[in-house]
Each structure stands twice: as C-alpha cells, then as structure tokens.
Computed example of a mutant assay.
Amino acid sequence: MRPRVASATVTTTVPMLDLTADPVELTAALVDVPSVSGAEATLSDALERALREQAPHLEVIRSGAAVLARTRLGRDQRVLLAGHIDTVPIADNLPSHREGDLLYGCGTSDMKAGDAVFAHLAATLTEPRHDLTLVFYDCEEIEADRNGLGRIERELPEWLRADLAILGEPTGGTVEAGCQGTLRVEIRTHGRRAHSARSWLGDNAVHHAAEVLARLGAYSPRDVDIDGCVYREGLQAVRIAGGVAGNVVPDECVVTVNFRFAPDRSADAALAHVRDVFAGYDLTVTDLSPGALPGLTAPSAQQFLAATGTTAHAKYGWTDVSRFAALGIPAINYGPGDPNLAHTREEHVDTRVINRSTDVLRRFLG
C-alpha cells in the first residue's frame, strides 16, 4: 500500500472532493481535475483521499494510478463497479461549464459522470444489499498493455472477483450488454518498383490492392441475435498506404482492415474468417481482442436489468467488459454519458441522466 502523504502537504496539492455531494457537482469536480491517459495521479490522489476520509466503511488501496475500494459485509453477492478515470487529450474543453441541463467538458461523458455516480454511492451506501467493490483505473484510452485493469488482474486478482461487474461506460443510462470483438490486420500486396516514366518496367502494388477493396465491397456482414441483443458485424478498410515518391511505381501497398465481430465468435474464429475472406494474401495481425457475451442470463444481471426498467441492447464497440467475461464474471455497460459524444470537443453529459442513473443504482444496490 502506498504511504499516506502528510495532511499539510495534501491540502495544498490534492483537490478536495466531496463524495457525498450531488453527483452532478461531483462530476464537474472530477472533470476539472485533468487526467489525460498516463497523467492520472492527481485525480487518483484526490479519489483515494476522499474515499479514506469520507467512506470509513471501505477498505481502500492503490495500484499505480488506480484506486480500489470494497466492503466486507459477508453478503451473498458482490457487485463490482468499474470506471476508468483517464481521458483523451484535452481539446480546449476545460474547465467544465453548465448550459441548462447539460454539463460540458473533457471526460464528462467518457466517463467521469459514471465515475462520479460510483464514487457517490460508495460513500453514501454504508449498508448495501450486496457487497461492493469499486475500481477506478487508469490508461483505458491508450494501448491495451498499459490498461490499469490488466495490471490489477495480474497483481491483485482477488479484487476482481464478483457476481456481476458494471462498467460505467457511456450508454445514455441504458443497459448495453457484452461487446463486440475487434481484429485489425494489415494486408500487403507486392509489385516491382520502376520509374513512373517507364511504368511498363514495373508492377504497381497499389493497383493490386484493388482486389482487396473489391472483396471488402462485396462482403456481407452478419447480424447476430444473442439473448435478444443484436450485434452487427463490420469489415472495413481503415487505412491504405503505398508509394515512396511521385515518380516511382510502388512495389508495396498495405491495406489496414478492421473486423468488428459478434461475441459468438472467438478471437481465433474471427481471425480464421478474415483469412478466408482474403485467401491468397499476406496478413499481419496488429490488434486482436475477443468480445464478451451479454451475460444477461445470470441472476444478478437479471436483477439489475429489472431495476433499470429498460431493455438491454448490444454494445457496439469493444469495452473492458471483455476482461470480466474472460474471468467468467457477467458484465454489462451502464453509464450516464452519451457514447456518440465521447472524445469530441463538444463532449457533454445530460445532468438529468446522471441523477437517474444514480437513482437506479441506489435502488439496485441499496
């Protein structure tokens, strides 16, 4: 456990957070502490201090820039609330500001509103129906090998044991179940370099990529219904690169293809499918993460879904629910932010959804 910093130093360097305050005000306070990926320490210090001082019923520890807390009440079930505290780079959208019911600022939607709801409930629910674990983690918005959840899984696996995991990713206050898997490959075509003035002496690798694009254009993606959630697959070229100069016939071209696949496919099955689509071409895998099944048949997930009074939908995109699913833990996405506003300059969150999400979770947990 990291040593406590003397209070005289903390008061001058660590922002004060009131976890018992209105969740909307707490959201604004979290947003106003910059925490771009890799630079979350100030916010981590503030959260750790607030949890230690305002939630004495919780066991609190640190893991790098992540803050973890939990109850030990001996309840029959444990619910884990997880939220990343990092953001994408700031785009002239700090400090936060209000316009009516909307709160603007970097990270409002993805996902400090969800963090605020979780932290508020952690401090104010002293006798929850279920035992609770809180995981506020770092480096979600960057490369996967730096993700704080991965570090916690390796170093503190007992802290991730639960009967249900709720990830506070922005869902607009609805339940988004599971997630798509993602695969990215590079497809190379080859030719022979030559001076473009004597192009007949060469063999243009960029022209050979036309067949790759034709296969993509002819591809028919699947719609897959799993537990009432329809996952839509997609196979798309996301980058193409070739050529070394304006007067040279290129001898290599690289087409980067991204496959978003339904969670009924394993990672190996997804890769095998893409190899079939592009049979005859050289493929290099640059990213591969499995999806997560909805997990809605678990009793704890059914109880939460009933508490929301809504119908679950498929999660389009990859989230860290995949990590929990791989551990055999039913996991869902539920947060007040709007996923369509994530990472934008105009990022904002509807404060009414913050309050509604807080009420739903309090009803389920309390």
Rank of each mutant, 00 (worst) to 15 (best):
E169R: 01
A65H: 13
I332K: 05
S44A: 15
T297R: 15
R192Q: 14
E143G: 08
P290L: 10
G105A: 06
L288S: 13
G105V: 05
D22Y: 01
L134A: 02
E347A: 05
V277E: 02
R151N: 01
I240N: 02
C253S: 07
D45N: 05
R188G: 13
F278H: 02
H84I: 07
R154A: 15
A214S: 14
R260E: 10
H208P: 09
T9A: 15
D320G: 04
V206M: 15
Y316D: 11
Y231T: 03
E53D: 14
R345D: 09
G246M: 07
R52D: 00
A214H: 14
A91P: 00
L51Q: 04
G178L: 10
R62P: 02
L183W: 09
N147V: 10
R151H: 10
A116R: 10
F304E: 08
R70Q: 11
D110M: 01
G335F: 03
S289R: 15
L160D: 05
L271C: 01
R151F: 01
I90W: 08
A262S: 15
R362Y: 04
S44F: 02
Q303P: 00
L293Q: 12
I187T: 06
E186L: 14
S109C: 11
L365M: 09
G228I: 10
G366W: 05
L121K: 13
R62M: 09
Q180T: 09
T344S: 14
D163T: 06
E252C: 11
T9S: 14
G309F: 10
D76R: 15
T256Q: 14
I226L: 15
G38H: 01
G173P: 08
Y219G: 05
T189N: 08
A123S: 10
W318A: 11
